[in-house]
Design a protein around this nucleic acid. Structure first.
Lengths: 228, 228
DNA sequence: GTTATTATCGTCAACATGACGCTAAACACG
DNA sequence: CGTGTTTAGCGTCATGTTGACGATAATAAC
């Protein structure tokens, strides 16, 4: 039965919004191959460990975050021969959308892990450039027809904060009034908590939490308005 | 580096429309485990073989079909410990949408392979019930916002044939007039070939081929009309 | 010819969208 | 306190899209 075996790893595309920009968590590799290069965090799947379980374990190890705080889903399998010089290594990539973390990165040396923008994140080890590109594309597409933008937000958030998620991930500006109408009328997207908050300036805003919907009806299409 | 290795297989969810129903290709297992049970076709990834390449090879072996005739995409990785009694086996599942094949199933014993409806396809070997369910869900979702319904059609097809694809996969009825308007106005979905064809009865219909679009704008949402 | 059947175009009300005006409620400043 | 600035959130309107369905065209069967 040992016709052909491969090592199986999981790699994580961890996305968050920090300092007004979409950022991905990268680590520097401490051991060969690609020693010293930037790479996506990841590791081997342990014996008797579920793929999803391995991804959740890695997420906890890298960020100290409970996977339930954000969103974690499988992105795809990458197994091109030669993608790892050590031999046949198949990696299962996962995509996570996370709220901005209170602590930088728990459990990791700050010099070895950093939140980078996608533009700063070229030349990664292995085929991680491709995996990152696939993850970004998946994230952008999913914001249209799922309520996953809320995964980038803390438990309570304002409509403006949710709009900033869309504007950041899609690299566009959205009309605040039309956006407000769309997200508050989309069934099950967000629910008012009854609380209000003052963010920087201006009138206080209502706080919302994520609603029960798994799909957006109608979707928030990207062809929305550009604001002056 | 041999910390933990697993066997890597590909399994295929091959969907087509035959005799007015959506059908999936199943095989009967000739060897243990699960000998005699129905299962999705699949096999081991060969050394130095790409995952996509292994899926295309299996597709050719099982159907005799060129992968370019339909659509083939990765569905996901399944690696729960215990899913295969032989040990740690991770499978990469692929989803294919295929036109109705001229020959039944080339290169396979007819008694060992069959096109079954999803309703007939419960109790499969391994975790193939789950993989099949995920594949069906993916196919249904993708018809909404991609032009992949054309992958179920021959190179030239009528609007009515395309509509039957949607009706079959979604298990609904769509209004022929509104459907015609939507697919002919959606940019790059289908292109007229200039030919016409008479199908069963009635006025001859124009023939179309698939257009260049990769995404449907606007999407064909499922909330369409029920016809009496 | 008449009838049955399907293709394709047209109409219309309901709804959704994008552009944008307007008021409300906070803070900063004098 | 009053005024200016900022953001929240509501309202309006022209335009586009959708679903329901009428009408006509083009074929085969008879």
């Amino acid at each position: 039965m040992t016709l052909n075996t491969a090592a199986v790893t999981v790699d994580l595309v961890l996305l968050t919004i920090r300092q007004g920009a979409l950022r991905v968590l990268l680590i520097t590799r401490g051991i060969p191959p690609h020693r010293g290069k930037w790479a996506l965090p990841g590791g081997f799947v342990l014996p008797d460990e579920d793929l999803d379980g391995a991804a959740m374990r890695e997420l906890r190890e890298e960020t100290g975050l409970d996977p339930r705080a954000g969103h974690l889903e499988q992105l795809g399998a990458y197994g091109t021969p030669g993608r790892d010089p050590r031999g046949h290594v198949v990696t299962i990539a996962y995509l996570a959308l996370l709220p901005d973390l209170p602590a930088p990165v728990a459990g990791s040396d700050a010099a070895l892990a950093a939140w980078r923008t996608p533009e700063e994140s070229t030349g990664l080890a292995f085929d991680h450039d491709r995996i990152l590109a696939d993850g970004l594309e998946r994230a952008r597409a999913k914001l249209e027809y799922t309520p996953l933008a809320t995964a980038f937000c803390p438990p309570e958030f304002t409509v403006a904060e949710l709009r900033e998620v869309y504007e950041t991930v899609w690299r566009t500006r959205l009309d605040p009034r039309n956006f407000h109408r769309k997200v508050t009328t989309a069934e099950g997207f967000i629910e008012p908590t009854g609380n209000t908050a003052i963010r920087d300036r201006g009138r206080p805003a209502q706080l919302f939490r994520r609603g029960p919907a798994a799909l957006l009806h109608p979707p928030l299409l990207r062809g929305t308005s550009q604001r002056g």
